[in-house]
Structures are given as structure tokens and as C-alpha cells.
Simulated scan of single mutants.
Amino acid sequence: MTDETTGVPREQGIQWYDSEAGPLVRPYAMTGGRTKPGPTGIRFDLIALVTLSASASGADDDRALGPEHRALIELCRPETQSVAELAAGADLPVGVVRVLLGDLLERGHATVSRPVPPAQLPDERILREVIEGLRAL
């Protein structure tokens, strides 16, 4: 095979990798053109925590999972990771990671715990009063 622009012979498969840009696979190709995580419409916050479920050990035999899915599973094996950490560790856009996590969630390979909304957290003033009350005992 030769490069059409330069006429220089190129190796088979080299056209899918650019030494400066990395792999030339577009994000929509990794997600099959999907932009939302699954039919449930789950939205993953950047700080949502992803943990592998017990069925994740069977993920190696799941032929529907691609290499990106498997990379996310491997990143979660040692410890729970946030969506942002997974995106950084897998070197993938956050939108792609959200779609892939939706697939893993649907197949039962992962669980997601969402952070507590700030409105539901106790007021700092109340916590300080509790601490002062405990110290007074």
C-alpha cells in the first residue's frame, strides 16, 4: 500500500495510528453513535463513584463489551473510581465514559453511587454546634 498524498509505501494498519495524535478512532465510533448512557437515561456526575459488581468477573466472557469497556473494568478492579478519574485513566472523553458506564451498568458489571446533593448536607453551623455540645460533655 502507498500513501496517496506522498506516494511513500506504508505498513498495513499504520493509517489508524498517528504518532502525534494517537489512535484515530473517533469517540462516536466507540459508543456506536450513542450520546446518552442507555435507555434508562442515567446521568453520571463527574464525582459519581463507580464500583465493580460481583458479576464483573464474567465480563471477560461478554462478547458485547469492547476494549474501552474492558479498560474501564480494569481501572475499577483495584478500587472504586469516580467518573472523572475513569475518564482520565482511560484517556477518553467524559461523554464516552458515561455511555460506556451505562453499558456496564445495564449488564450488571458495575454499580454507581451518586454523591449527596449539597442541599441535603447538614449545615456547617449545626455541625459546629454539635461538636461544641459534645465537647461540653
Score class of each variant (00 low, 15 high):
Leu52His: 03
Ser19Asp: 10
Leu134Gly: 00
Pro115Asp: 07
His109Val: 01
His109Tyr: 15
Ser55Gln: 08
Arg114Gly: 04
Leu105Lys: 03
Glu106His: 01
Ala64Glu: 13
Met1His: 11
Ala71Tyr: 01
Ile73Phe: 13
Pro117Met: 06
Val116Gly: 06
Glu68Tyr: 15
Leu86Phe: 03
Gly38Trp: 01
Val8His: 14
Arg98Trp: 01
Arg26Pro: 03
Leu24Phe: 08
Glu124Ser: 15
Arg107Met: 09
Gly7Pro: 12
Glu4Asn: 00
Pro78His: 05
Leu75Gln: 10
Glu68Asp: 11
Asp91Ile: 07
Leu49Arg: 15
Glu124Lys: 11
Pro9Lys: 06
Glu74Ser: 12
Gln81Ser: 08
Pro118Asp: 15
Glu68Phe: 04
Ser57Lys: 09
Leu92Tyr: 04
Pro118Arg: 14
Ala87His: 09
Gly95Gln: 05
Ala87Gly: 12
Val116Phe: 11
Gly102Ile: 03
Arg107Pro: 02
Ala48Asn: 05
Pro9Tyr: 13
Pro115Asn: 09
Glu68His: 14
Ala29Gln: 11
Arg26Lys: 06
Ile126Phe: 08
Asp60Ala: 14
Gly89Asn: 07
Ser82Val: 00
Met1Ile: 04
Ala71Met: 04
Arg26Ala: 11
Glu11Lys: 08
Ala90Ile: 01
Arg98Cys: 14
Arg135Leu: 15
Asp3Thr: 00
Ala64Gly: 15
Glu68Thr: 08
Ala136Cys: 08
Glu74Cys: 00
Ala110Asn: 01
Glu20Asp: 11
Thr31Gly: 10
Thr40Phe: 06
Leu104Gln: 07
Pro37Thr: 04
Ile47Asn: 13
Asp3Ser: 05
Ala88Gln: 10
Asp45Cys: 06
Glu106Trp: 02
Asp103Arg: 04
Pro118Phe: 13
Leu24Ala: 14
Leu127Lys: 07
Gly32Tyr: 02
Gly108Ser: 12
His109Pro: 06
His69Phe: 12
Val112Trp: 01
Thr6Asn: 11
